[in-house]
């Protein structure tokens, strides 16, 4: 059964079609990579799923429920969580508090954070390898640490679907390898993942399927190797000269 279903989703900014008639669906438990060159519409697609923008036409269905017109804070309650292309930590709050925020507002509301909230926040910091920094203000973390914190915070809301936007951009090969392990562990927790990854370093290794976009249109979908052999995808990434090689 599909967890997320996009039906003819389109978004127009001014005269420019950022996305055009995207049909796609993701099954529960899958890891799907979203690839495409700059300006292909990847982040726009995420913003539509996360209800930051409203589509010009088309529908988004999550767990068979239409979410096209939800408010951003509401979509999280239904089980979609996200990280941001440029990470957005709560800079002056401690690393632990950052994750606690996700836990507290993702779950049932209490006036005060419960000790179980703090415990599970600690476990998530452990998972992303930030346990030793729990009292550091999030703004003082390095870029890669902030990305992992973003991930921990998103996971803390206990999503069914997690949208990862460029989590490994600028990472060293070692850090990318760690991220691959991390993403697999996240999947083991029963989370479905949708990953934007411009340089393919993460999505090629972990994805079950890829969705390739170019100029706002779907050019290919399927198993990673197939998609990467697709002529349109090669042309989109490398230009026409490499098409026949």
């Amino acid at each position: 059964m599909s967890l997320l279903k996009l039906e003819a989703l389109s978004k127009k900014f001014g005269d420019h079609w950022a996305l055009k008639e995207i049909d796609f669906s993701i099954d529960e438990g899958e890891i799907v990579g979203l690839v495409g060159p700059n300006g292909a519409g990847k982040t726009t697609l995420f913003n539509l799923i996360a209800c930051r923008h409203r589509p010009t036409s088309g529908r988004v269905l999550f767990a068979n429920e239409e979410t096209t017109l939800c408010k951003p804070h509401k979509i999280q309650k239904l089980g979609i969580s996200r990280t941001f292309q440029s990470s957005r930590p709560f800079a002056k709050m401690s690393t632990l508090d950052n994750v606690v925020v996700g836990r507290v507002f993702g779950g049932e509301f209490h006036l005060f954070a419960q000790s179980t909230d703090i415990d599970s926040a600690r476990q998530l910091l452990e998972l992303v390898g930030l346990a030793h920094k729990e009292q550091t203000p999030a703004g003082d973390l390095t870029l890669s640490e902030q990305r992992r914190l973003d991930l921990a915070r998103a996971l803390a809301t206990q999503p069914r679907l997690l949208l990862l936007d460029e989590v490994v951009a600028g990472f060293s090969p070692v850090a990318v390898k760690q991220a691959v392990d991390l993403v697999r562990r996240v999947r083991q927790r029963g989370v479905t993942l949708f990953i934007v990854d411009h340089f393919l370093s993460l999505s090629l290794r972990v994805s079950d399927r890829l969705l390739a976009l170019d100029h706002g249109e779907k050019v290919a979908e399927g198993r990673p190797q197939e998609v990467m052999r697709n002529r349109e995808v090669i042309r989109a990434y490398l230009g026409t000269r490499y098409e026949d090689e």
Binding site: H73, S81, F90
Partner: peptide, 15 residues
């Protein structure tokens, strides 16, 4: 505090 630091992220975690 979360709203002060990053309003968009605050909204994304359900605030």
């Amino acid at each position: 505090q979360a709203i002060r630091e990053e309003e968009i992220a605050a909204e994304a975690v359900g605030i």
